[in-house]
């Protein structure tokens, strides 16, 4: 396995694969954050999560086109505008979906799964009709292109670095929102004991709606960040939905720290193995290990101890 490589080369390989793993980690974590709110806190299976993400990606694409054509002066910072728009687009769609669909199904989790799968099919076809079946990419502003040379062998692309920083910021924001804000306190109260939360004056229906909308909004931001390192197609969301669910379940539903840890483990394992095996085998082995561990330890890595 290691023959024919010198020590420095091996070091660089691990550093590069480690960095590729970090980017994959950012992608996983960004996708899983929204789901950790929706699935981890509310227990709602949102199979259309990937499509909410893709909505954010398409909003970013539209922004890059519009600003590139009509306001080139802003092009350097269009990305931040796009992210805010992506958040609100996905969050408002999420609120509508919660109001029309999800709120009727809170007591039938398996049916929610099927209904949101139907929603994801419809959204995919909408994207295909509006944006075409081909994948689209955004134009990156000048400062995001290029790579940062660490040594002769190690080069780090700047857009990857930017996405990683963004991931850290969004994770911290979600953490503060969930564990330091009044809204987060209400969400956790409703999820732990709905009746009691209602009795102390929390409007549980409204909290549900907000939680779902914010979870979808975070997915939109994730999609927006996603466009910087890859292209967007109508079915791109579906490709990642299983990985995302595994990340959340593996981390332990309801635990933000667990989601971060499991995204890191899965991403690093996969990208390190990718160098030595084919890409598909690396993925198969990683997912099999995760499924195997989940069979032995169904509660995931971190479990929040709640008396039910």
């Amino acid at each position: 396995m290691f023959e024919g490589y010198t020590a420095t080369e091996l070091g660089s390989i691990f550093a590069l694969q480690g960095f590729a793993g970090l980017i994959l980690f950012s992608v996983f974590l960004l996708m899983a954050l929204g789901l950790a709110i929706i699935f981890g806190q509310m227990g709602v299976i949102n199979m259309a999560h990937g499509e909410f993400m893709i909505l954010g990606a398409y909003v970013t694409y539209l922004c890059s086109q519009v600003i590139g054509n009509y306001a080139p002066a802003l092009f350097g910072v269009y990305f931040f505008i796009a992210m805010i728009l992506a958040f609100f687009a996905s969050a408002s769609l999420g609120a509508v979906v919660e109001w029309t669909l999800i709120r009727h199904l809170y007591k039938r989790p398996l049916d929610t799964l099927l209904a949101t799968w139907g929603l994801s099919l419809i959204l995919q076809q909408v994207y295909r009709s509006v944006f075409g079946a081909r994948e689209v990419g955004v134009n990156l502003p000048q400062w995001m292109l290029g790579a940062y040379r660490v040594t002769d062998l190690i080069e780090i692309p700047i857009n990857g670095l930017f996405v990683m920083c963004l991931t850290v910021l969004i994770t911290i924001a979600v953490g503060i929102l969930m564990f330091r804000s009044r809204w987060g306190q209400q969400v956790r109260a409703v999820m732990q004991n709905r009746v009691m939360a209602g009795a102390v004056g929390i409007n549980t229906a409204r909290v549900d709606q907000m939680t779902f909308a914010i979870g979808c909004g975070v997915a939109g931001v994730a999609g927006s960040a996603f466009t910087m390192i890859g292209s967007t197609g109508p079915t791109a969301g579906q490709l990642y939905i299983v990985d995302t669910f595994l990340v959340v379940v593996f981390g332990g539903a309801g635990s933000l720290l667990g989601t971060v840890a499991s995204a890191f483990t899965i991403a690093q394992a996969q990208s390190t193995m990718e160098f030595f095996l084919s890409g598909s085998m690396a993925k198969v082995l990683t997912l099999l290990t995760v499924v195997g561990i989940l069979m032995l330890r169904p509660q995931g890595l971190f479990q929040i101890k709640v008396r039910r």
Binding site: T112, G118, L121
Partner: peptide
């Protein structure tokens, strides 16, 4: 197909 999923469930 999507409408079928949603309709059947709802």
């Amino acid at each position: 197909m999507g409408a079928l999923f949603i309709g059947v469930v709802m």
